[in-house]
């Protein structure tokens, strides 16, 4: 088990505001792996709604995601997918 690092871009228009932030956190909670998000030099725990909110990631922001733990691959796949789908918003 090494750490998985992924880069994603926030696609949805409103950025990581209330609803997508909630979706992100809810999904992250399904996995045992630790999950961190870095924006510029701010690193927060991706399982924390308040942390994700304070990131204030607008559309177009590039984020680095780190996953570490027994189910890190599944977690990475699912979370990256969420970003790619724009959190189910168009």
């Amino acid at each position: 088990m090494i750490m998985i690092t992924k880069e994603v871009t926030v696609k949805n228009r409103a950025g990581l505001h209330t609803r997508p932030a909630a979706a992100l956190v809810k999904n992250a909670a399904k996995y045992k792996s630790n999950f961190y998000i870095t924006k510029n030099n701010m690193r927060i725990n991706g399982k924390s709604i308040i942390g994700v909110m304070t990131l204030a990631a607008a559309q177009g922001t590039v984020l680095t995601l780190e996953f570490e733990g027994e189910d890190e691959e599944e977690a990475a796949r699912a979370i990256v997918q969420l970003f790619e789908d724009g959190f189910g918003e168009e």
């Binding site: 209330t18 956190v25 809810k26 909670a29 725990n45 399982k47 924390s48 709604i49 308040i50 942390g51």
Partner: peptide
């Protein structure tokens, strides 16, 4: 009502 769902999530924030 969704405002209060948000409150619930903050209350249960694992990091906090």
């Amino acid at each position: 009502a969704e405002i209060f769902q948000g409150h619930l999530m903050m209350l249960h924030d694992p990091v906090l």
